[in-house]
Amino acid sequence: MNNQEAQFVLSAYRPGGQDALDPAFAEALEQARRDPLLERWFNDSIAFDRAVTEKLCAVEVPAGLRESVLAGSKVSRPSRWTKPFVRWAIAAAFVLAAITGSLILREAAKPHLAAWQTNALSQVSALVEGHAKFDAQSRNASELVAWLRENRASAVQNLPPSLERLESLGCKTFFWEGQPVSVICFQRGEGGLIHLVATNAFAPFNRMGKSERKFVQQGNWATVTWRDGASVYMLALEGSRDQLQSYLL
């Protein structure tokens, strides 16, 4: 590194010394310690930077700006009830509550299965509402499946053929009763989203028959849960049972 290169790097060194431990500056700093000319340039540069910072921070802010910001934000903040996103979230919360109630009633004999479904729907809802983020994002679902396998998070063995044709958005993993669960979100061709939740077929699913498909339709939401070998899947979408059925063919 010559002095010109060192000057280039040291130009990004903050005058407060916050970057003293940043390895990107180590070589240039060492060179400045060895070379008196470079050291002089560096000291001058730091002094100049400090002076500019002081001058800038001394710029006066117009009187009343703070009050204006606070008052303006208050009146400009959209009403919680009129924001489309919040309206949707509230509607979704009602639907989820209804689904939860329905699941509990219908699956009273199998509380664990209902609890798993409820939990899975909550995770899906959190993703859709933006309260949770994807762990990985790709438009290619096979890449997401590969990512899930690499991270030992997936029980996805085979995607339903109808989903393979869809563009994916991303995936998320979580745990339920110590078991890894994964969600992959897809964009439906006709608009909207469809979500595939997968987990290992552990205790709550022991009674499920191999060809058994459990549909739950509540409000705008339709879900179907089934077992395939060592895995259990649930599909969820905003739509009808028929629409959901079309993804199982």
Binding site: L56, P62, V69, G72, P78
Partner: peptide, 27 residues
């Protein structure tokens, strides 16, 4: 505001930018 002042043409524009930024934060 000071950041806006170095970018914008005037003090008023900088104040507008500051206000708009906080509106967006609120939303």
């Amino acid at each position: 505001f000071r950041f806006g002042l170095t970018l914008a043409k005037s003090e008023a524009d900088a104040a507008d930018l500051t206000q708009q930024t906080f509106f967006l934060w609120a939303a």
